[in-house]
């Protein structure tokens, strides 16, 4: 069983009889009880997407998936082409199907992702929980402010815009939490 709190982009679960994949985290909030999440999920079989609310007390059956370690090989228009690290086979996944994961992966990445297959067809990727990305644009850094409490917008090498502490600058490498797309720390 998979707890709702374990769902993240790229994770598959059974919604009743329907295998679903999480495409986007649209928001998470903590109340007096447990955390609630809003996610965009896609039916792996029909391709239908829906926005759904989750509370972390719910539990789900896992989907029987094949998993292959792979690296992003090239991008062809809206298609991301991954190469299986063992067989060198190549698999295409549409940008839309990658959901929020397009924010975390780019050509030349050192890390591998887990390419997930359902009924022999690639349906998504699971990224590591922490990935390193480089800032390509932000306002100049403010030296001395290491509190991290004040933030500014920064564009990453994937095009994703994220809030980062004021001390960050263009070229700074940062650790990003792929569960919610937030800055965690400056990469060593």
């Amino acid at each position: 069983m998979l707890a709702a709190s374990e769902l993240k982009v790229g994770v598959c679960f059974m919604n009743g009889n329907d295998p679903m994949i999480v495409q986007r985290l649209l928001g998470n909030k903590s109340g007096r009880g447990s955390m609630v999440f809003r996610m965009r999920i896609k039916n792996i079989v029909t391709g239908q997407t829906m926005d759904a609310g989750f509370d972390s007390s719910e539990k789900f059956q896992e989907v029987d998936l094949d998993i292959h370690k792979a690296k992003l090989s090239y991008i062809d228009g809206d298609n991301y082409v991954f190469m299986d690290e063992e067989t060198y086979e190549q698999f295409e996944i549409n940008k839309e199907d990658l959901g929020d994961n397009v924010n975390y992966i780019a050509l030349g990445d050192e890390f591998t992702v887990e390419l997930t297959f359902y009924d022999g067809k690639p349906v998504g990727v699971k990224t590591p929980i922490q990935v390193v990305r480089e800032i390509t644009y932000c306002e100049p850094g403010v030296k001395g402010d290491t509190s991290g409490k004040a933030t500014k917008a920064a564009t990453l090498d994937t095009g994703f815009v994220v809030q980062v502490p004021l001390f960050c600058d263009i070229g700074t490498k940062i650790m990003l939490d792929t569960r919610d797309g937030t800055f965690t720390e400056r990469a060593k």
Binding site: G16, M20, L26, R38, G53, F54, E58, F60
Partner: peptide, 23 residues
């Protein structure tokens, strides 16, 4: 859920919420 004036309340209100059973 609990009462809040935060704008996300509108986003969450009446959202379907998956469960592990079709019934």
């Amino acid at each position: 859920e609990y009462f809040t004036c935060e704008t996300w309340a509108r986003d969450f209100h009446l959202l379907p919420s998956p469960t592990r059973s079709a019934r």
